[in-house]
Design a protein around this nucleic acid. Structure first.
Lengths: 142, 142
DNA sequence: CGGTATCCTTGCCGATACTG
DNA sequence: CAGTATCGGCAAGGATACCG
């Protein structure tokens, strides 16, 4: 039984976990990584580990609370590691794990999409006000 | 002006942050598509258009309010179309636009990742309680 | 069938103060 | 430097009732 490849195990996991079922823990995981700070943290750590202060400065606008909270959750889920060097002053380094690195391309794709299609979305929003092109009414009445 | 109170510094930081956000609306878009219902709606519509009731039944656990709200936002952003057939009973069909279809692979990748790596995350969570392997303390003291 | 409108609770999140 | 602890506002989101 131990002769199962990683791909096979993932395939089986997919059958077991169906996100369309409300009780499925995948929902929670999907919700956990569908967070606006998560993708920013991931791309910030893409090129190597960073210290807490560096992360805080890189991701403009995040509060101490939200940054710490999000980092703790990602650490708990095994997506990144937190390394403390017992020195004065204390240094804390955050680094993506292998599992976290496997999610990185997806996070990057999400950000890339947002950046490269921003124009089209803005156009759609303007068009929506003036009389939506995305609105259709089909009269089927005889 | 070195004599700046903490409140003044905070106020300036906030103005700068707001300006930054104004220049970079990508943050808002990223937040809009980083929603747990969005990815589920996208994969549900992957194989073709669906009616409101079909969507509601496919995505277990979503309330009428959240489904409608999310669909409206996606429609406004030009990611899907809403077609009403003026018949009795009324039929409303939701369909991904070309723009929406371009985001579909990313949404699918996100869900695939969540489903296929759920086991590893659960293991990480268990390990986190008993004594985290994702926790490191490096003693640098001489 | 496919919504809208309303009330109301939960918890997200920011701000502030304090610690090793 | 890198947090923890606490308070409070306010908006997201659920439940319910009603409409075209």
């Amino acid at each position: 039984m131990a002769t199962q490849t990683a791909a096979e195990r993932r395939a089986e996991a997919k059958r077991k976990y169906n996100a369309y079922v409300a009780e499925c823990p995948t929902r929670q995981l999907l919700d956990a990584i569908s967070d606006k700070w998560v993708s920013l943290i991931f791309t910030a750590l893409a090129d190597g580990p960073l210290r807490y202060g560096e992360l805080s400065r890189t991701i403009a606008g995040v509060t101490q609370k939200m940054l710490t909270q999000t980092l703790r959750r990602l650490q708990r889920d095994g997506l990144l590691t937190r390394t403390v060097t017992a020195d004065v002053p204390v240094q804390v380094e955050y680094r993506l794990t292998a599992l976290g690195a496997s999610l990185l391309p997806v996070m990057r794709a999400l950000q890339d999409w947002a950046e490269s299609h921003m124009d089209e979305v803005l156009v759609a929003r303007r068009g929506h006000r003036t009389g939506g092109s995305a609105e259709h009414v089909v009269d089927v009445a005889a």
